[in-house]
Structures are given as C-alpha cells and as structure tokens.
Design a protein around this nucleic acid. Sequence first.
DNA 1: CGGCGCATGTAACTTGTTACATGATTCC
DNA 2: GGAATCATGTAACAAGTTACATGCGCCG
Lengths: 195, 195
Amino acid sequence: MKQSKTRYVILGLLSETDLSGYEIKKIIDTRFSFFWHESYGQLYPELKNLARLGRIRETPADAHMLQAQPAGGKEPSKREKTLYSLTPEGRQELLAWLAEPPEKESVRFELLLKMYFSSHIDASVIHSHIRAFRDSHREQLAMLDSFQAELLRIRGEHDNHEDVLRIIDFGQRVYKAYLDWCQETMGYLERRMAT
Amino acid sequence: MKQSKTRYVILGLLSETDLSGYEIKKIIDTRFSFFWHESYGQLYPELKNLARLGRIRETPADAHMLQAQPAGGKEPSKREKTLYSLTPEGRQELLAWLAEPPEKESVRFELLLKMYFSSHIDASVIHSHIRAFRDSHREQLAMLDSFQAELLRIRGEHDNHEDVLRIIDFGQRVYKAYLDWCQETMGYLERRMAT
DNA sequence: CGGCGCATGTAACTTGTTACATGATTCC
DNA sequence: GGAATCATGTAACAAGTTACATGCGCCG
C-alpha cells in the first residue's frame, strides 16, 4: 500500500517552526519546488487530519492575537491565520519516517516524450519546446543561486543550514545538466534545420 | 483540466511499429524508465478506449496467426497477443499533441525531503539512504550506456536514432550529476560522522 | 513439474488536481 | 476603487496504483 507523503512534509516543516497551512504551501512552492510539490487540496485536509490524530496542535488566530496585543506597536500580520505546531507524537512519527528507506523518485518529462517521437514533426517545433524548457530552468537556477548566496551569508545560524546547502547543490547540478543538454540539443536541431 | 498523457505514449509508440499492450509496457519500463512510467491499470483501459475512438486498430491474435501459418517454419511467438496499429486519425492526434508546448515536468524526490529534515537523525542513516540511491542510479546509468552503445552500433537504421541518442544523453548527464552529488554529499556526511 | 516470463485484464482504492467560494488586507 | 496577495477550505473529478485473477509456453 503506497501512501501519501503529504503528512511528513507537514511534520518536517513544523519541526523547525510553527506555521499556517498557507505558509507551508509557500515554502514548498519556493524552497522545495525543484524536488517536491503539494496542492491545497491535499494540504488543508491533511492538517485537519494530523490535528485530529494528535500529531500536530492547532492554535487558532485569536489565541496568538491576544498574546501579540500587549506588546503594542505594529504587528507584521493582523490577518487571521491558524498556526500549527508539532506535538511529541508528531515528532516521533517524523523520526520513524526519516529512518525508513525512501521510495524511488518519480519523474515525468513530457518534453522528452515529445522529443522521442519528434521525427514526425518539424525540428523547429521541438526546438522551441526546448528553448522554453531552457528559459524556465535558467530562471529556476538563478533562484537557487540567490537562495544559496543568502544561506551562505547567514551560515551557521541554524542546525540544518549545511544540509540545506547540500540540497541546493543537488538542484544546481541537475539544472546545469539540463541547461548543458539544451544548448547541445538546440545546436543539433539547428544544424538539422539548416539542411 | 489536466489530462493523462497515457494515450500519447501509446500513439507515439505505435507510430513506429505495431505492438501489444504488454510490449508497450516493456518499452516504457526499459527505454523510458528515466523519464516516464505507466502502469497496466492505465495502459490496458486506454488501449480499449483508443480503439473505440478509432485512433488505433485492434488486431486479435487469430488474425495474424492465420497470416503467419502459410509461411511455415517456427514462428518466434505462438502465444496469443493482441496487436494494435495506428490509424490515420490516431496519427493526426499524435501530431497535434507534438506541436503543443509540453507541460512542466513533475519530479518528486523523497530522499531530498528526508535529507532536508535530517538534522533530527543520525548522519549514518541518511548516508545509507544516499548510498542506496547512488547504487541504484549507477546501475541505471550502466543500462543507459549499453543502450547507447547498441544504438551507435546500428546508427542510421531508423529515422529517430539521432533523437533517441539525444534523449539518452539527457539521462546520462542527469544521472552523472546525481552520482557526483552523492559522492560529495557522502563525503560531507562521513566527515560529520567522524567528529 | 515448478517457476518464470508472456499476456490481458479489472475492481477497489488512494492520490492528486482543479475549480470554485469566501473574505480580509495591503498597495497603488 | 481595483488588483494582488493573504488565508482557508471543499466538492467534483481525474489520475494512478495495487492486488488479484487467469492461463499459456518454455526451460531446466
């Protein structure tokens, strides 16, 4: 029985700091984007589910609003949001999952599928598909680079900085491999188009 | 509305030669394994569906058995299998899909998720996860290398050989990036374990 | 004669996406 | 005042996996 990993992403992120559902989604969309993704349709129900099971604790907006009021001044966010925090049981489950061997990664590149069958179409079409792929990954790589620079600046402030740097390095290597391949393959296609 | 790509993999593969469902699965599991996957549960129903829509034609076992009989001698396979072939309508649909911009690739690496949260566990655990990842991709890379060698040997026999070589090159570059990262990251973890 | 690979299928289930609804706040 | 972003949710649906069932042919 294969089961969803959504719960572990939640547990993992809450192991660092308390977060709302929305904030969790943001983190996954930015920091994890090159190796993971989740949709609200999975996130919010799973948060409720984990709270029901006692793995995380739900702290409604009003509670931390009351705490914030006495301090006075302008709070960075006055909006209602529900923060979640990890319970000891949740931490236990996280640790158990971490120790288990991870599943094989799953990847799906529609671009390569199209390229595989591209002898049927004009080389310029596949060429433009690859250019779009290259452009998008150039941007993504730039984001990784700036995220890395930021982390190097504040290096050592947090336990897992070194690990995170290793993960960014993974993304950078892979994206560079993509980009090199794009250059070479676009060149190949251009030579084919010229004849 | 996001829709399954299963039908296009089928149409694409049948554009080269007639195949049975089982053979299609085999090809995806071997040649496409580093960028695509499909399960029987999607393949067989979609084959029936495409046949119903007239995109492919189903030729039952008995039909091509009868053709094969008069030739005499030992046929390579006497087992029942249902071959499918592409119809002009199917080819049309394939071409239309090829021209459309591909969707963004989707990837999911549970290993990196675990590594991200690994400050909670012993470095040796994540080290062994990475070793397993490395071993599995070493094997995969070796398969790509031998597939490449085979294609180079019979180069030019088929229209799409150059394209296929480009796709193999993609896999090789990416896998090499994985392996390099594994080496470096395992070294980093070993240093951390030594202290 | 037992096990493996060939070969086809499906039912039950889980997973995941999308579209929609709602409303506050912030910034221009 | 209107757009963007923050914020939470869900219902309907589509996609995808798994476990099971069945039986043949081939090889040792």
